[in-house]
């Protein structure tokens, strides 16, 4: 890839903004919060972040906020990720490697279905399918 200048970056940004303005995205905010403390990083949270961004781009999903947080006290199931999607229960997923990150985008964010085997907190037991 050739070295990108700030002006080229600005152009890309504006292109993307024009595309976004044509879509109806109101009230569809998705929040993905990745545990990127030492425990998260050690377990591969950076790969999960890359996979989330890549899958969001591939599926052209708008209004997604991606943030990082520190250790959530679930070090044994890092990388952990909290996912907030309208009309879905706020969910904390554990053992989110790159492939699981992609599944979360496809199934939870787009398909509105929990990725049950990775749910570690939040929705009550009767929501999660065994």
């Amino acid at each position: 890839m050739a070295k990108m200048t700030l002006e080229e970056l600005r152009k890309l940004r504006n292109q993307k903004k024009d595309e976004l303005d044509k879509r109806d995205t109101e009230g569809k905010d998705v929040h993905i919060i990745i545990g990127m403390g030492t425990c998260g990083i050690a377990a591969g949270a950076k790969d999960s972040l890359d996979a989330f961004l890549d899958e969001i781009e591939k599926n052209k999903i708008d209004n997604v906020t991606v943030k990082q947080t520190g250790c959530m006290g679930l070090c044994y199931v890092e990388p952990t990720v909290e996912v907030k999607v309208p009309e879905m229960p706020d969910t904390i997923y554990g053992n989110v490697d790159a492939e699981t990150a992609r599944n979360i985008v496809r199934e939870h964010v787009l398909g509105k279905k929990l990725v049950s085997e990775h749910v570690f907190d939040r929705p009550s037991k009767d929501i999660v399918k065994e």
């Binding site: 970056l9 993307k16 969001i56 943030k67």
Partner: peptide, 10 residues
């Protein structure tokens, strides 16, 4: 923190 910005920043 918007995914769009992060993809471009990356």
């Amino acid at each position: 923190n918007s995914a769009d910005s992060l993809i471009l920043a990356k």
